[in-house]
């Protein structure tokens, strides 16, 4: 999964999609997922990375990351 190229992501967690005019905000863990996606990481790498950085359990992380990626699709922020 990839984030659309033209989407601007700022350090504050603000996202702007110039193609649609929609803007979004995301929290720090969400921003980290965005950055990893930008770096071209796949889901399992993202999960590994987050597990190293954040204090939580694997199942929780897996469920939440799945939900987050679904929301990115829902908001049409991704491209194949």
């Amino acid at each position: 999964m990839k984030i659309k190229q033209n989407i601007a992501i700022s350090e504050s967690g603000f996202l702007f999609d110039p193609a649609t005019g929609h803007s979004f905000t995301t929290n720090p863990s969400g921003l980290r997922i965005m950055q990893l996606l930008r770096e071209g990481k796949n889901k399992s790498t993202i999960l590994e990375q987050l597990a190293q950085e954040f204090d939580t359990e694997h199942d929780t992380l897996e469920r939440d990351v799945n939900d987050y990626l679904n929301m990115l699709n829902y908001f049409k922020l991704t491209q194949s």
């Binding site: 504050s12 967690g13 702007f16 803007s23």
Partner: peptide, 11 residues
């Protein structure tokens, strides 16, 4: 500017 909008929405 989008930067201004970003500030009010995120900060």
């Amino acid at each position: 500017n989008i930067e201004d909008f970003e500030k009010i929405t995120t900060k």
